[in-house]
Simulated assay, not measured.
Amino acid sequence: MKIFKKNLVKMTMKMVGSLALFLGAMVIVPTSLVGSHQPKCPDELLK
């Protein structure tokens, strides 16, 4: 029973880690794509 519980916890943690990495990639990629576009600053503000 202890071995089964240990393996179940290990498998659950592995799935949670994979899910966290997947969701992190889903959030980071669109944010970085949108963030890469920087509006041009007018020349009057640069003086």
Results as ranks from 00 to 15, higher is better:
residue 7 N to I: 13
residue 47 K to G: 13
residue 23 L to N: 01
residue 12 T to F: 05
residue 37 H to T: 07
residue 21 L to W: 06
residue 35 G to W: 01
residue 20 A to Q: 08
residue 14 K to M: 05
residue 22 F to L: 14
residue 24 G to E: 00
residue 8 L to C: 09
residue 29 V to P: 03
residue 20 A to P: 00
residue 36 S to I: 01
residue 39 P to Y: 07
residue 38 Q to F: 05
residue 18 S to Q: 07
residue 14 K to L: 11
residue 27 V to A: 06
residue 31 T to N: 10
residue 35 G to R: 02
residue 24 G to R: 02
residue 35 G to T: 04
residue 7 N to V: 13
residue 32 S to M: 10
residue 38 Q to Y: 08
residue 45 L to Q: 12
residue 6 K to H: 12
residue 36 S to Y: 03
residue 36 S to N: 10
residue 47 K to A: 15
residue 43 D to V: 03
residue 37 H to C: 11
residue 6 K to W: 09
residue 45 L to G: 00
residue 3 I to S: 06
residue 7 N to K: 13
residue 38 Q to R: 14
residue 26 M to Q: 11
residue 27 V to C: 04
residue 9 V to G: 02
residue 39 P to L: 07
residue 3 I to M: 02
residue 39 P to E: 12
residue 37 H to W: 11
residue 21 L to M: 13
residue 28 I to T: 11
residue 47 K to W: 12
residue 34 V to M: 14
residue 17 G to P: 00
residue 22 F to D: 00
residue 9 V to S: 06
residue 47 K to S: 15
residue 25 A to W: 01
residue 21 L to E: 09
residue 11 M to T: 15
residue 13 M to W: 14
residue 41 C to P: 02
residue 4 F to G: 06
residue 7 N to E: 14
residue 40 K to D: 15
residue 20 A to Y: 12
residue 21 L to N: 03
residue 28 I to V: 15
residue 35 G to I: 00
residue 43 D to M: 03
residue 8 L to G: 05
residue 40 K to I: 08
residue 13 M to V: 15
residue 6 K to E: 05
residue 16 V to W: 00
residue 9 V to Q: 06
residue 21 L to Q: 04
residue 46 L to T: 08
residue 11 M to L: 12
residue 46 L to A: 14
residue 41 C to H: 12
residue 18 S to F: 11
residue 43 D to T: 08
residue 39 P to D: 07
residue 3 I to F: 12
residue 39 P to N: 09
residue 47 K to P: 00
residue 28 I to Q: 02
residue 16 V to T: 04
residue 39 P to F: 09
residue 38 Q to D: 05
residue 17 G to S: 03
residue 34 V to I: 15
residue 27 V to Q: 00
residue 19 L to D: 01
residue 4 F to D: 05
residue 45 L to H: 06
residue 46 L to G: 04
residue 33 L to Y: 03
residue 28 I to C: 06
residue 40 K to H: 10
residue 41 C to I: 13
residue 21 L to C: 09
residue 9 V to L: 11
residue 39 P to I: 08
residue 15 M to D: 05
residue 4 F to W: 04
residue 35 G to E: 01
residue 17 G to F: 01
residue 23 L to T: 08
residue 17 G to A: 02
residue 18 S to M: 14
residue 25 A to M: 08
residue 39 P to A: 12
residue 23 L to W: 03
residue 46 L to E: 04
residue 41 C to D: 06
residue 46 L to M: 13
residue 6 K to L: 10
residue 18 S to C: 14
residue 27 V to H: 00
